[in-house]
Amino acid sequence: MTNQASAVSGSNLSPASGGEATHKHFWQNLVAACLSIAWNASFLILSLALPAGHSRGDVGPGSLPMQVSVFGLIVSAVYLVQVLRGIDLGGSSERIDVPRVLGLLGLFVAVALSANWIGLALCLGIGTGVATLLFPGEKPFIRAIATGVGFWAIAYGLFGKLLELPLP
């Protein structure tokens, strides 16, 4: 996973030499480290706004969140330093298959959003059926119909009727 062996010492503020993969990992980790610092900094600001404790000895509701965010800031800073020093902390070397990933995610977001209008069981049936078309394979339409009907039956019959889940 992590290739510590490929670590390059020094303080050069650029990706380590080690091919395209290492270059990609550098930028991915740099963005992740910056996001982590931003998250912990925002969390710290929100923690400081919380009221003090009322009981004697109580450190108050903001104390632990504040300590956690300070800890998060420290480890994020160490992470950032490691990235900037050129240590390869691993990452994704392949391109993300954006249309497929977003397609699957988008379909299920649509399922969740439309559940209140046409019912979760039906939405799931349609969603799962269409989602199978995103995968390569033989007889896609038959597979899509079979999967869609199957999951509608599971959602409506098993969860809606048998387990009495109040599906929207």
Partner: peptide
């Protein structure tokens, strides 16, 4: 796994 620092970043996120 391989990176302790990434594990600690995740732990801080989980605690938050």
């Amino acid at each position: 796994g391989g990176s302790l620092i990434k594990g600690l970043v995740c732990a801080a996120f989980g605690l938050a």
